[in-house]
Design a binder for these strands. Sequence first.
DNA 1: GGAGAAACGTGAACACCGTTAGCGGATTAC
DNA 2: GTAATCCGCTAACGGTGTTCACGTTTCTCC
Lengths: 255, 255
Amino acid sequence: MTRQPTFHQVEAAPSGTRRERVRQATSREIKEIARRHLTAHGASGVSLRAIAREMGMTAPGLYRYFASLNHLLEALQAELFAELGAAVDAAEASQPDSDTDGRLLAALRAVRAWGLANRPEFALLFGPAGTPPASSPEDSPAAEAGQRFASTFVALFDRLIAEGRFTVPDEPEASPALCAQLDAFASLTGFSGDRASAGAIRVLLGCWVRFYGIVCMEVFQHLGFVSDDMETLFEAELRDLAADLGVAYRPPDAR
Amino acid sequence: MTRQPTFHQVEAAPSGTRRERVRQATSREIKEIARRHLTAHGASGVSLRAIAREMGMTAPGLYRYFASLNHLLEALQAELFAELGAAVDAAEASQPDSDTDGRLLAALRAVRAWGLANRPEFALLFGPAGTPPASSPEDSPAAEAGQRFASTFVALFDRLIAEGRFTVPDEPEASPALCAQLDAFASLTGFSGDRASAGAIRVLLGCWVRFYGIVCMEVFQHLGFVSDDMETLFEAELRDLAADLGVAYRPPDAR
DNA sequence: GGAGAAACGTGAACACCGTTAGCGGATTAC
DNA sequence: GTAATCCGCTAACGGTGTTCACGTTTCTCC
């Protein structure tokens, strides 16, 4: 303990007071161990008592850091969204800035790769919602992190719209109610105002849903009965998907 | 207890010996209660002790009927697949036999409707696979029931192929490995041999994946941020999907 | 009809789990 | 130096899946 007791305020520590630093370190350790247990045994294998045991603590002590096991899992969700987002960003950054097609393909492939490499984590993020959706508009940290993750793709899709990549099929009978909601969604998520017609957003949403379907099916292992070489099937779907978006398909780099 | 004790064998009971009947009745009661708990509190809310308590039994007694909680859940899965299949069959039967389009649309809508009306059940069937896939090829009752459910749609898709509904895009570079696996899948699931080219199956699989995506997203509540009127969005997706299959879209019956 | 086997359900026990309440000690703030 | 705050502990409550040994009921077979 080599601390000069003269000025207790200054100190200029990395972040906040000493208490806050050690507190945050403990919090991080809890989440790291929880993550390991999640990876090893799935979401149901994460238990406060086991985490505390591994840390040399007792379970009630963890309640100073997380209000409940569910809150811990929510915090984990937020971290995982960030991790997935970082993986996507990295993949995107591996492509030239101007190459919208390459960046989108790389981003989508990165999501699949992350999901396959982190099945339980992916299931926690995109599986059935255990908790009823937060009443207040997205006050949960997980939902907020999820929106930040989504914004990555919103930005990419926005570029497609701006570049006028795909022709929106003039919907013969798009219900006005749906149009209104899609427009609201557009402005809320920051789509470029004018060009983002409800029709365009429907195309993008359709593609996202399609992508979600293929990745979930593969990660959740509901396609084992058809083939064990999912890579090529995924790429075939990706090709179709790209075509719908006016994106030039390119096979993945043989790395 | 008015039983004539003369001939213990004959009796001509509905099925099997008396022992087997009461055993099956108990087994059915267990599954019924488990189903109620599943509906009310999700898969994690199904507990042997609670079921036993409700039956006036003790938990170890249930082990005479199911080897473990997981086996119970698997049996439940099988029953739910059958229930979902029955709902789909009923919807299909509401359309004229010759009306392939109407039958397919009705069947797909039935899946969505069942999922929305039975969220936890749907999650158990189509959510992340908790147990690693059975080593032996589909010896688990759940997997077997799942295949039976799938066969309903296989038959419908088969009709589309037989009727030559959609033109398969001649894949420029369908990998031979994938083609072989798709062909194997075709013969295994009973697609009509010759017409079911790997290309056609890819189209069908793509549509199925797309459908899976939209329904899962809705049931798992990962689309709450875009709209709360999912019905119209689903129908819009369904329209696109039908177009890919050469199926004439028709709005749902205003019932 | 009676002996033996098979199935059934129970009580006790083991090892876990989430969560709450109350307490003592360390750290911080004033 | 004193008061407030935070921290981690113990103890406890009620819940879980699962195993084992035991008595009772039921069936089978001679």
